[in-house]
Design a binder for these strands. Structure first.
Length: 431
RNA sequence: UCCGCAGUAGCUCAAUGGUGGAGCAUCCGGCUGUUAACCGGAGGGUUACAAGUUCGAGUCUUGUCUGCGGAGCCA
């Protein structure tokens, strides 16, 4: 008997097939018994009637518990009463292992309890749907850049110094070379890649030792960072909006069932099309003032400020040209106003906040040396980076997209901890 | 790091300072189409920990621990 997957059932109606999986739930009304099996690709209701199947198989129902592993064999038929629309008439049950007291019951649970058994929580339908959307997003990210001739360039995880100098870094001993730090961004290495390949993207985990304790922060998260030689700020914004359009379209097309499981209102997602609204930092400050918020020009936006700004738009909004003093040393100044950096952030709608941060990079050697001094960074650590300005420096730009925040936004989740299989947070290192 | 909230059965939650309960899960029984099935029964407690106030503390006070939410910082 060939083993098939539940997601392929529609091709096997009327056939006798075998499904291997786990008990999701079971119900009985005496002589008619239902076993709901999940196999990782979907769920299937199996039915057996007393007298229509061996007495042994019929009675084995009593020993089955939630999440016990087994193989079921039977004929597939269409039945609207069954979840998913297909049902199996059981002819054989092969028990692999009986699970005892599975902790996640078909009722409500608290977050702490579920996070402690995250390795089991992954089996639950919502978590299952979220991780499939995450996979689709990552697939779409790679597709987008690969189809445009970008070269994937992996950046190191161990780094000798801070990329931006602002955030706290995780530190570790590195043999006789002193301290190494876990990367907080692959960008500087991406810039080196862009000078070699023209257009590259760095995709990997990044680490921030900030003691942030909010629904938008993890200590370990994934970031994708394209970097393109000869792009300016406008090119960068255009790349970002086409990128977001592609990701959202890919999820809507391929993961609509998962979005439905998550009860995601997709009307906001359907509006994510180029062009996205673009406003300057100064215009964003005016929006805050009009809404009666006391905000001083020159400061960086907080989480609630971002929410208020994005509330006025029905799709992601790009905010550009921030005050240089709140941004990183490597961002190029606006030639029209030296107080501004050629920076851009993309704020997701519905209060999800910043999902992209990027800029045109400073390409002038003297200017960037000056910035390194102003930021009190050790120039010696950046000598290799300064070489990129010594040898054939060109205008270039790039951005970073936070995968978890993007997954959270597209899935409509209220916390990024559910967007990654095993989240790392300030007070959680296990499982 | 700071501010706020919480911790009671395996889980989710009740309990006016006066004998700690319910639903789910588990176990036993019933039901020929169930949909987080339903119905009947049983077992299950150092009320996070420590001290204090009181005739009496799950409840009030202090401290500790853990978690949640927020701020700052950021993707």
């Amino acid at each position: 008997m060939a083993r098939i997957y539940i997601e392929d059932l529609q091709h096997h109606v009327g056939e006798e097939v075998k499904i291997s999986g786990w008990i999701y739930n079971k119900r009985s009304s005496g002589k008619v018994r239902f076993i709901v099996v999940r196999d990782g690709t979907g769920i299937l209701q199996c039915v057996m009637v007393k007298g229509m199947i061996s007495e042994e198989a019929f009675n084995s129902f009593d020993t089955l518990t939630q999440e016990s592993s087994l193989a079921v064999t039977g004929k597939i038929k269409k039945d609207d009463r069954a979840p998913g629309g297909y049902e199996m008439e059981l002819s054989k049950i092969e028990i692999i292992q009986i699970a005892k007291d599975y902790p996640i019951t078909p009722k409500e649970h608290g977050v702490d309890f579920l996070m402690d058994i995250r390795h089991l929580w992954l089996r639950s339908s919502r978590q299952h749907a979220i991780l499939r959307v995450r996979h689709q997003i990552i697939k779409a990210i790679r597709e987008f850049f690969d189809n445009r001739g970008f070269v994937l360039m992996d950046a190191p995880i161990f780094t000798p110094a801070a990329c931006e100098g602002t955030s706290t870094l995780f530190e570790t001993d590195y043999f006789d070379l002193g301290k190494a730090f876990l990367t907080q961004s692959g960008q500087l290495y991406g810039e080196a890649g862009a000078m070699a390949h023209g257009k590259v993207y760095v995709f990997g985990p990044t680490f921030r030792a900030e003691k942030s304790k909010t629904r938008r922060h993890l200590t370990e998260f994934w970031m994708v960072e394209p970097e393109v030689a000869f792009n300016d700020l406008n090119d960068n914004m255009e790349l970002a909006e086409e990128f977001l359009e592609h990701i959202v379209a890919s999820v809507l097309k391929n993961r609509s069932a998962e979005l439905k499981t998550l009860e995601r209102n997709i009307s906001f997602l359907e509006k994510v099309k180029k062009p996205l609204p673009k406003i300057s930092y100064t215009e964003a400050v005016e929006i805050l003032h009009k809404k009666g918020i006391n905000f001083e020009w020159g400061n960086d936006f907080g989480g609630t400020d971002e929410t208020v700004i994005s509330e006025g738009f029905d799709r992601p909004v790009i905010v550009h040209r921030y005050p240089a003093k709140v941004k990183a040393f490597y961002m190029k100044r606006d030639p029209k106003n030296a107080d501004l950096a050629l920076a851009m952030d993309v704020l997701a709608p519905e209060g999800y906040g910043e999902i992209i941060g990027g800029s045109q990079r400073e390409d002038d050697y003297d200017a960037i040396v000056q910035r390194i001094k102003e930021h009190n960074l050790p120039q010696s650590a950046f000598e290799w980076y300064l070489d990129l300005r010594r040898y054939g420096s060109v205008p270039h730009a790039g951005f970073g997209l936070g995968v978890e925040r993007t997954v959270g936004w597209i899935c409509g989740l209220d916390h990024v901890r559910e967007t990654i299989p095993f989240p790392r947070m300030i007070y959680r290192l296990t499982p």
